[in-house]
């Protein structure tokens, strides 16, 4: 087992918002609540969940692109959670991000070459004379030829743009990359290419990934560990093989059951989750999943379940789950 790279404890993010016709009612959206996990050097840790579950907020808070409202993030013995922009700057080189939509994350008025040179020159990773060789190596790393350096983002296809966005993250020579829905916006035949590229780069440069996605089938193939999130809380965190073979949290099971399978025979009957994700503005008390949970009991409305380790490395936050093989309760018939 490798050493921990980033240790996250009790990370929270609340957005104050104003409601009412005159903005007179203040309210708080609890986008992320008490997130605790350790990211191991060299691994791919995936976070999955539906919109509003806080998975992207987690990534943004770890990189301090959003200021966490509580908790701690320790990298190289340094607390990052409350650093201001200037203090954070030296760490940005090591901690990078690839966004979902590569088109909107590239400055439309900069050529690819300019976009890639910027971080290299800013962080003084190469001199002006070394720059062309460095650019050409970066482009080669992501499978693009040198001539792309003179192009504008709009002249590229979606897959090529995402390769550029990856190259830009690599330009900083990082150790850790947050992939925030990095393949979601791409065409099916291109998704696999970009996934494979990310895996190749991980091997080559010993990168650690936090892979944020909503597509569980994708996550299963590339992750070492997977965290399932619901309404700002971690519901389950386990080694990938363990989680997909033996999902313990009722939400994880429902989520897996909702994933369409490319097989006309299997997918006609499935367990369906009723209703929709409640608003994070006014989340349910106790276990946030209790309003949709087939196992829900009185205890679930009152008490927030803590994340407990059931088998080594497999953590679940559910009152009903006590061992890896049995759930304590039977489903409530609706």
């Amino acid at each position: 087992m490798n050493a921990p790279l980033i240790t996250i404890k009790g990370l929270s993010k609340a957005f104050p918002i104003r409601l009412g016709a005159f903005g007179d009612k203040a309210a708080v959206v609890r986008a992320l609540d008490d997130f605790t996990a350790t990211i191991i050097e060299g691994e791919t840790l995936s976070l999955v969940g539906e919109s509003g579950c806080g998975k992207s907020t987690t990534g943004f808070c770890i990189l301090n692109l959003q200021r966490p409202s509580g908790g701690s993030i320790v990298y190289k013995g340094q607390e990052l959670a409350q650093l201001d922009d200037d203090a954070m700057r030296p760490f940005r080189r090591d901690l990078q991000i690839v966004f979902q939509d590569p088109y909107s994350t590239l400055n439309p008025r900069m050529t690819i070459g300019e976009a890639l040179s910027e971080p290299i020159l800013f962080h003084k990773l190469a001199t002006k004379s070394e720059l062309p060789a460095r650019l050409s190596r970066l482009l080669a790393d992501v499978g693009l030829s040198d001539r792309f350096a003179s192009r504008y983002p709009h002249e590229l296809s979606g897959g090529q743009r995402q390769r550029v966005a990856i190259a830009r993250a690599l330009a900083c020579e990082p150790r850790f990359i947050v992939c925030d829905e990095a393949i979601s916006a791409l065409d099916v035949s291109v998704q696999a290419q970009i996934l494979n590229l990310l895996l190749d780069l991980q091997d080559k440069y010993k990168l650690t990934y936090l892979f944020i996605a909503h597509d569980l089938a994708v996550v299963r193939h590339i992750s070492d560990r997977v965290g399932v999130m619901y309404l700002g809380r971690l519901a389950e965190l386990a080694p990938s093989s363990d989680l997909f073979a033996n999902p313990l949290h009722p939400y994880t099971r429902a989520l897996l059951s909702a994933v369409p399978e490319p097989d006309p025979k299997s997918s006609r009957q499935r367990q369906r989750l009723q209703g929709e994700v409640p608003s994070p503005l006014n989340p349910p008390s106790g276990c946030r999943f209790h309003t949709r949970c087939p196992l829900a009991r009185e205890k679930c409305k009152a008490e927030v379940p803590a994340l407990r380790e059931i088998t080594p490395g497999h953590q679940v936050a559910c009152h009903a789950v006590t061992s890896a093989t049995t759930t304590q309760w039977e489903p409530v018939s609706a």
Partner: peptide, 17 residues
């Protein structure tokens, strides 16, 4: 608030740049 500005922040560039 455009994503490419967030991306530039993530690169560690200064506000002036």
């Amino acid at each position: 608030n455009r994503p490419y500005v967030t991306a530039a922040r993530a690169l560690g560039l200064t506000n002036r740049i």
